[in-house]
Structures are given as structure tokens and as C-alpha cells.
Amino acid sequence: MSQTHPLRVVVLISGSGSNLQALIDGQKQGELPVEIVAVISNRAAVRGLQRAEQAGIPALILDHTQYESREAFDEALQAQIDEYRPELVVLAGFMRILTPGFTRHYEGRMFNIHPSLLPKYQGLHTHQRVLDAGESEHGVTVHFVTPELDGGPPVIQARVPVLEGDTAETLAARVQQQEHSIYPLAVKWFAQGRLQMKSGKALLDNEPLGPQGYLMGTTQP
């Protein structure tokens, strides 16, 4: 059942914020029943902060280099996020490994997007690793965040073919197009009350999703 008010969302970024822009566009166009109440970056002077400011969204910087430990930074970040009382936290190119305490605090209400067909190619440099391995397809996964790096239950995946002559850059660009479609869709399902995490599994309309989540290319529910 969908809620009567827009879902309060905080978005965490580290860079250009193209997925943030897809969410902003969906909110503005009325396609996403959400209110992005803050954008927080661990790096200053990134394009994503400008995107937030241009949309009239509070844009904050919390520089991780100013903290003596990963735990200290995550504690400060958690306090900053919680000031905005979010119902969902969205990692949109947030390039930090999060501590278990932080991820447990937002368990079941934090998403990440990862440029691979999880559980394949967790971690960094996925596009080059896919090419080096001679894969015929690549893609992107939205998943709930758990303490395991890139290991939370998948919500939705989109696949793209690996074409002859692809470079890491051309492959990344094709994957990013899919990111901008599936991330807003996952957020929309959550805002509508259709998507949840229960007992370590992602459920859509109270039905468990498969080990790779909902696969784009089939009929959209």
C-alpha cells in the first residue's frame, strides 16, 4: 500500500551525481512520490552538489579526510543524515566502504547501485574486469545495503551486451543509461510500499525476488 505523503529520501554522493539527477527529474516530473530532503557528499566541489543546489535541495559536505577513523566518519554521517528523518537512504556513487554499525542502522531502508550483474564483479573497475574476462554481457544491479560489500539482496538488474570493440568507457556509458532507468524504478517501488527487505531477502508485492532481483526486459510490474 502506498503512503499518503512523499517518501523522505537522503542521497549520498561522491561525484557527478548522474543517478541523483535521474531521481531529481523523476521527483520534478511527478513520477516518483518522493521528496529528496538532502544530498550529502564526502567530497567538496563535485557536480552532484551543484545538481542538488540547482534543484533547491540542501547540499552538504562531510569530508571523510577530516575524521581519524572510518567509524568516526560514519558516526558523524549517520548523525547528519538522521537530522533529516529519511525513510530511505540512497547511495548514488558514494565511494565509501561503510561500517557494519552504519549499515545496520539503515537496514531495510538503504539502497546502493553497483555496475555489474551481482554477485559477479563486486568492488571496483567492473567494466574493465568484464572485458578482461571476455564476458558477453554486463549490467547493473540495485540492491539493499548490508554489512557485506555489494552483497545485500538484489532488487533489480538490467543487462547490456558486450559489443566487439567495446572499451571500459563505452561499456560504462551503456550501463549508465540503464542505471538511470532502474534506480528510479526501485525507489518508486519502495515509496509505493511494494518493495521491502525481510529476513535478508528482497520482496516485491510480498513475493521474494530471485537471487538476481527483478530482471529488466520482462514485463514491468
Rank of each mutant, 00 (worst) to 15 (best):
S2P: 01
V9K: 04
V11L: 03
I13G: 10
G15D: 10
G17D: 03
G17M: 03
S18I: 11
L20P: 09
I24T: 08
Q29E: 14
E35S: 15
E35V: 12
E35R: 15
V37H: 06
A38M: 04
A38Q: 04
V39I: 11
I40T: 10
S41M: 07
R43G: 08
L49M: 09
L49N: 09
E53P: 09
E53R: 15
P58D: 10
A59T: 07
A59F: 01
L60C: 11
H64M: 01
E68H: 08
E68P: 00
R70Y: 06
R70L: 14
R70N: 14
E71K: 11
F73H: 02
E75M: 00
E75N: 11
A76I: 09
Q78L: 04
A79N: 12
A79F: 01
Q80G: 08
R85M: 09
R85N: 13
R85H: 14
E87D: 05
A92N: 09
A92I: 11
A92L: 06
A92M: 08
F94D: 14
M95P: 06
L98P: 05
T99M: 08
P100V: 10
G101R: 13
F102M: 07
T103F: 06
R104G: 00
R104Y: 00
G108R: 13
M110T: 13
F111T: 05
I113R: 15
I113K: 14
I113G: 12
I113Q: 14
S116F: 01
L117W: 03
L118S: 07
L118I: 08
L118V: 08
P119E: 15
K120P: 00
Y121C: 06
Q122E: 06
D132E: 15
D132I: 10
A133H: 08
A133W: 01
A133I: 00
S136P: 10
S136W: 01
V140G: 09
V140I: 14
V145R: 10
T146H: 03
E148A: 13
G151H: 10
A158I: 03
A158F: 04
P161G: 04
V162Y: 02
E164P: 14
E164Q: 12
E169N: 06
A172E: 11
A173P: 00
Q176F: 13
Q178G: 05
I182P: 11
P184R: 11
L185A: 13
L185T: 15
L185R: 11
V187Q: 05
V187W: 02
V187Y: 03
V187N: 06
V187F: 03
K188R: 15
Q192P: 02
G193A: 04
L195V: 11
M197Y: 01
S199F: 02
G200I: 07
G200Y: 07
A202G: 12
A202R: 08
E207N: 12
L209R: 09
G210D: 15
P211F: 00
P211I: 05
Y214G: 02
Y214T: 03
L215P: 00
M216V: 15
G217Y: 02
T218C: 06
T219K: 12
